[in-house]
Amino acid sequence: MTFARVMIFSLFTLLAFTGFANLVPQVQGDPPVEEKIDVGSIDMAGMVLLGEKLFSGKGTCTLCHNDMGRAPDLLGIDLAKEFPERIADKSYEGIAKGKTGPKAIEEYIMESLVDPSKYVVPGYGKKGSNDKISPMPKADTAPIELSKVEMNAVTAFLQDKAGISPTVPLPSADEAPKATGNDEDEENEPATTGVAAITKYGCATCHDLEGSEADIGPKLNGLAKRMTDAKILEAIVKPNVVIAKGFEADMMPDDFGEQMRFSELNLIVEYLKKLPE
C-alpha cells in the first residue's frame, strides 16, 4: 500500500514535469540548410537579399550584432558614416588602409569576415586584450562555414545598408556547382509520399517509373523479389557498388545520400518494393 502510494506520487511529480516541458513553445533545431544559389540568374538585388538572409540565418551574425552591446549593432548604426571612419582610423592597418570608395569598403568588410582580429572597433575586443583580439569567429571556418559566394552576399547586403551599390562579383558557375532552384524553401520541403519523392529527385528521367518508359537506367519492376531493403537502399546511395547487367557505372548520381532526407529514402524504398512485376 505504501509502495503504491509512493509510486503514484512519484509518477504524478514526473508527469507534472513532462507536461510542463510540453507546454513551452516547441521548436526543433534543424541543422542549417545549404542556401542554393541560381548562378545563372542571380543579380545584385538577389545577392543583397541572400546576404540579408545569411546575416540572420546561417551566418548567425545577429547573435552578437544586435542592440545588446555585445558587438557593433550593424543594423542599427549609420553604416554610411561608420565604414569610412573605421578605414580612416589611425590604428587600422588592414588591406583597405589609405583607400576610399565602395571597393575599399568591400575589402574592409570581407577582411572583417575572414580575419576579425585585423581591426577591432574600440570597446568591442576580447576582455583583457586591449581591443587587439576580436571575440568574433572567422566566418569562413567551422562552425559557421560561409562560402566565398555567401560572404560576398553578406558584404553586398552590408554595402547596400551603407547606401552604396554593392561592388562584389556575381557568382560564376564553378563557384556553386550544386546550384539548382532558387526557391529553396519549396525545394527543401521533404516529400511525404513515394511518388512525390520519385518526382522530386527525377528518378523517372532514367528509370521506367510512373509510365515514363525511360530506358537509361535498369527497369525496377519486381524489385522486392530480387533485393532486400538494405540492398535497395545501398543501390540508391551507392549506385556504383553493384551495376545491373547491360548498364554502365557512373551513370546515376552518387550523391543522393547527401541530398535526400532519411524519410524520403524510406519512402522511395517502400515505393520501389510495391512495383508490380
Binding site: L15, T18, F20, A21, N22, Q26, D30, P31, R261, S263
Partner: peptide, 19 residues
Amino acid sequence: DQSPDAYIPTIGQAGNTIT
C-alpha cells in the same frame, strides 16, 4: 553529424524521452 538525427529535438520530445 550527418546522421538523420542531426537535429535538436523539441523540448517536449526531449521531456518525453527523459521521462
